[in-house]
Design a protein around this nucleic acid. Structure first.
Lengths: 342, 342
DNA sequence: GTGAAAGCGCTAACAT
DNA sequence: ATGTTAGCGCTTTCAC
């Protein structure tokens, strides 16, 4: 059996409660006994049992992370390691542990969340995605359990704390950027329409197209999973249109890489024959050939801000709602061609 | 306050222990009372407090994951999400939760591990890397706490349970593969020499080179971090040699992508001017141009087998050591050229 | 400034 | 087949 607070108390000739106070560094304990107790802890190699502490003071010192079904290939998107980095950093600063969901299906994940919450295993939860109808979100809200969403909630978004980019504006600006380069036929290759981020970017694209007096064409809109596989099919469909696009707005760098690949196979040159702008600006964007003009959405910050918000929310008794918009910027590289003389 | 086992007991007219037994689905409880108790749980919306349970039966139902310093960019390597997928799957099957380390520096991570272990927060630990001198590993071993290593431990590897590929053999075979294609000047671009995987692959390379009666040249060996940035510098150094290599063994697909990129900038064509074989076979390998001949090391299985081993180790009272070699296979694509007529 | 004692919610002997 | 009773290791009133 491991060494407990009692052993320390015994050795230091104090009561267990005193040892507890020393751990919490209570000001009501004299420096002298503190020293004595600390020496005893040292001697015995004492380490507090976190589980016992959690039970006594009803706080787990852990944050729950809810992924979009971990069996899913979505994890392969470089987005996730990068948000994780940001979250890790914040968790580490606040001395919080991270607890990950492992469920496969949606209902399994739901059960896990219920267990995290009711089992008091975590003090708060971060949802690493935002989709249209989400009963996990509804549940958390109903329980008024501390949580924050990465991405904009589909509804009730003024009563939910979330961290997001302004994806609508980003979608619009990116499209306007291409229009500014003289493109008139711009297609949109987006991810899962269940994800709010896709909807927002598409809406922004739409706005820009119509705003420029161009025609919004349904056959220019393609949705596939946020993965490379989807890219290929999308491109084939698109390029076989009578009037193929001269520019593409692609939801994601990984997808864009797939697109690039397929275009190459088809003998279509980027940026000479077609221009591409994508989102996320992960390492790939820089490493592909041609390198991709991509919207840097500051993924790391998304994660870091999310956990900061969550920790504030846990600490503060009043639950004020907070919405953080992480800035983004278009990083110009070599995947876009100017059609007009500038 | 949440509803507890006592509330359920009261409502079902049984003792708390009976409720506890119903939760554990003990065979010593009559179906009739089970039904009654379950109904009570349902009515009250009862969910067991996992923390309390952990304290009582000294098992956390959670596995600790130790990453190589999470602040580190290493996380960006697609290797990690993929092992995570495998681990997640196994954790999920065994109803184990996952705890992640969040530390930045090595000593911080060490402290976290001590807390996980002494704080009884986890029942076992998976080390997601294997490096040369590792005090975390030594500590775990000294405590005889259940753990498994992904990758081969540097020493004591017959007293430590680990899951790995045969990286020595893989390194050798890959090199022989290139030799078989007529290459005589083969360079090795490896990752961090602190990592055992690098050492093993390099040793295999060495073996193949000497075995074929070729000369082992120090200036053909380059070590950089497992990241794209490293790739560029490495290639420049290498190609400015008097007798530049005609083939490259690269530690990692991501790194190989960087290499590809740099070669392209330098106007060197792959595979016409130089051949490349890399390791890991992540999505990138398929999506790059030219697509990369890469060693598929079955990353997912690495993770899955690791957690299976760990769970066995936790459950079985006897700690028999287990070493699992996950098979690998060379996936041929378009980055290698045959120099001889075949 | 320190100690005694109750209790967090559950499990696991030991009874019956 | 079920109830009684101690804990698990810690925190936290309430005394002194």
């Amino acid at each position: 059996m491991a060494v407990t607070i009692k052993d320390v108390a015994l050795r230091a000739n104090v009561a267990p409660s005193t040892v507890s106070r020393v751990i919490a560094n209570s000001s009501r304990i004299s420096e002298k006994t503190k020293k004595r107790v600390r020496a005893a802890m040292e001697d015995l190699g004492y380490h507090p049992n976190i589980i016992a502490r959690s039970l006594a003071n009803k706080s787990a010192q852990a944050i729950g992370l809810v992924m979009p079904s971990s069996g899913n290939k979505v994890l392969q998107n470089p987005f996730f390691p990068e948000v994780l980095r940001g979250i890790s950093m914040g968790a580490h600063e606040a001395k919080q542990a991270l607890y990950m969901s492992t469920g496969e299906t949606e209902s399994e994940i739901f059960q896990e969340v219920v267990q995290m919450v009711q089992g008091r295993r975590v003090d708060g939860i971060i949802l690493l995605y935002s989709k249209v109808e989400d009963n996990i979100l509804s549940y958390l809200k109903a329980q008024s359990f501390p949580f924050v969403v990465i991405g904009k909630p589909f509804k009730d978004n003024d009563s939910i704390t979330y961290v997001d980019n302004d994806n609508f504006r980003a979608g619009r600006e990116v499209t306007e950027y291409l229009i500014g380069k003289g493109h008139q036929n711009i297609a949109f290759i987006g991810g899962d329409l269940e994800l709010v981020v896709t909807i927002d970017r598409l809406t922004g694209y739409d706005k820009a197209i119509r705003g420029a007096g161009l025609q919004y064409r349904d056959d220019y809109i393609i949705h596939e999973e946020f993965l490379q596989q989807g890219g290929k099919e999308a491109v084939h469909e698109l390029m076989s249109l009578e009037e193929p696009p001269t520019a593409l707005v692609v939801a994601d760098d990984l997808m864009a890489l797939g697109v690039l690949n397929t275009l190459d196979e088809m003998g279509i040159s980027v940026p000479n024959d077609i221009s591409i702008v994508s989102f996320n600006n992960v390492l790939l964007a820089e490493m592909s050939r041609p390198s991709l003009t991509s919207v840097d959405i500051n993924i790391y910050d998304l994660g870091y801000q999310a956990i900061r918000c969550l920790i504030e929310q846990i600490e503060s008794p009043y639950d004020m709602v907070k919405n953080i918009k992480v800035p983004y910027q278009i990083i110009e590289r070599n995947s876009c061609k100017n059609l007009v003389n500038s």
